[in-house]
């Protein structure tokens, strides 16, 4: 399967998975520990997906959506990280590099989320000004609108971002191949879960 078709399928899959984070249900299908291996299967490397899923699950373990606070998107970070960990040019360096860039671009996803939610404010008056007999229909339409916009926004985000980071990560990996101490960097992936373990312990130690 060529890379463009893979990205397209992945964008559609991400559109569905991201619905779980906010729009529909919150059954936690979108958590890194679940999404990581699934995207990994997509690239025939579920073990890489699981490793990244574990690192990011731990890192985002104490990130909680409270009130108007929109947390950084763990799902986007995981999907992007797993995709780029599988870039051929990166070899063993792919995992740490992809997590490094995946997290940055998950902040971009968070930004689009804020924009969509701000945009949603505009449509409230549509129900406020409706005649009583049309209220029900308009509320239904708003709910459907919410689902469709969220789904399409996610697909669009991935279709734009995937080629951009693909280009960045691939070239960074090529540059690192010339680095004399690159062998040592490989071990960093085994250390990264420790950061999340510490974050998890600190979170549970809080009053």
């Amino acid at each position: 399967m060529n890379i463009t078709l893979k990205f397209l399928l992945l964008a559609i899959f991400s559109g569905v998975v991201h619905l779980d984070t906010m729009v529909f249900g919150q059954f936690m299908f979108s958590r890194p520990i679940v999404v990581g291996p699934i995207v990994g299967y997509f690239f025939n490397s579920p073990q890489t997906g699981l490793m990244i899923g574990v690192i990011l699950e731990l890192m985002y373990i104490s990130v909680i959506p409270i009130g108007i606070k929109i947390p950084p998107d763990a799902t986007a970070a995981t999907i992007l990280s797993v995709v780029f960990a599988n870039i051929r040019e990166c070899n063993d360096l792919g995992m740490p590099m992809s997590i490094f860039f995946g997290i940055i671009f998950s902040l971009v996803y968070k930004f689009t989320d804020i924009q969509i939610r701000t945009l949603n404010n505009m449509y409230l008056s549509w129900v406020d000004t409706a005649k009583a007999e049309f209220v029900e229909k308009r509320i239904n339409l708003l709910v459907y609108y919410g689902i469709v916009v969220s789904f399409l926004r996610t697909i669009l985000f991935y279709l734009i971002v995937l080629p951009i980071i693909y280009f960045i990560v691939k070239n960074v990996c090529v540059l690192i191949q010339y680095c004399p101490v690159k062998e040592n960097f490989r071990d960093i992936i085994y250390i990264l879960p420790a950061i999340g373990v510490g974050i998890g312990i600190a979170h549970f130690m809080e009053e």
Partner: peptide, 23 residues
């Protein structure tokens, strides 16, 4: 109510989802 946050907005937050659920 699985869709309570489908139209989450900064002004009234889960209002659309609440109205949709109780309808």
């Amino acid at each position: 109510s699985l869709l309570i946050q489908s139209m989450w907005n900064y002004e009234r937050m889960q209002n659309v989802g609440f109205a949709f659920s109780i309808k």
